[in-house]
Design a protein around this nucleic acid. Structure first.
Lengths: 155, 155
DNA sequence: CATCAATCGTTCGAATTCGAATAATCAGAC
DNA sequence: GTCTGATTATTCGAATTCGAACGATTGATG
């Protein structure tokens, strides 16, 4: 099940794990995206607003780092958030290359209003796994993610 | 680490698991996308070609089901693959609403050439986890994904 | 046979996402 | 101070992705 691929056992195992990881993530994302869409924003926009709410104003570069997105992507998403009046851009005084992004009152109100429901929704989605198994999953993902970001090889 | 959010313990745990799941998936996807890009295709296109290679020709609707993508998305991706001469569309004779998609010789050659390297790459990415831990991860993801697809509630 | 609802694919508009190329700014070397 | 290289954000082109609206086709119902 998962992959209909017949190969070496280690390949079958890794591919099966891979496909299940992707499908689970897809399902979680789709559910959360549908939920935040009711408030008129996308999951990417939600990520920016939530980061600004919990960590405060920061440069676009920092946002890209936190959210693992490219610089050009952040520019586009901030453009759309700014057009909706949810964030504001400010050229940093002591380094005019940097643009700091902050929540507007409207943006703060919105994200503060929808975040609790978002958190509850995540709790509910993950409630299929016991607390111990949630921790297991987090640990496995942490190990996996670590080994990839650190092993930046080319071959 | 992960979320800088202070809330109820069950919320912190679920959010932490969620963020690590997303980041791990992002890292894996980015690595594989960079690899297939060397052959001039995207990860979405790769998914279609690989499905057709291992399961044979099928309708666009079936492809969307396998890959968890919308119908309009499949149309677009198939458009791009067709333009590159990698797949062919055939109106099904006994039901002219359906369009079957199949690999062209060029498409088959391409996917057969790059799939082994792709599989090896996945094996390497997941080698940070022992075989047992890979199976654990797969099982946790399967449980998580199942509970979401089956529990199609609204609230 | 005619109509009507369901199914399948396409089209459209909008947002995301990337990499490459570009512009503005800054920091260091001289 | 000036030049050079690095950093930061923007722009551009292309692909992905979705939902909604639409057209074509089918199957069922009368």
């Amino acid at each position: 099940m998962g992959t209909h691929f017949t190969g070496r056992p280690d390949e079958v195992r890794a591919l099966d794990t891979f496909i299940k990881l992707m499908r689970a993530t897809d399902s979680v994302s789709a559910d959360l995206a549908a939920h935040v869409a009711e408030s008129g924003i996308t999951l990417g926009q939600f990520g920016v607003l939530e980061t600004l709410l919990h960590l405060g104003p920061m440069s676009q570069g920092s946002l890209g780092g936190k959210l693992l997105r490219s610089g050009s992507n952040i520019t586009t998403v901030i453009d759309n958030l700014q057009r909706q009046g949810l964030v504001a851009r400010t050229r940093r005084k002591d380094d005019r290359r940097v643009v700091d992004v902050s929540l507007t009152p409207k943006g703060r109100t919105l994200i503060a209003r929808i975040f609790p429901g978002h958190a509850r929704r995540i709790v509910r989605l993950f409630s299929a796994l016991s607390p111990d198994r949630q921790r297991q999953l987090a640990e496995l993902c942490r190990t996996l993610g670590r080994s990839i970001s650190e092993g930046e090889q080319d071959t």
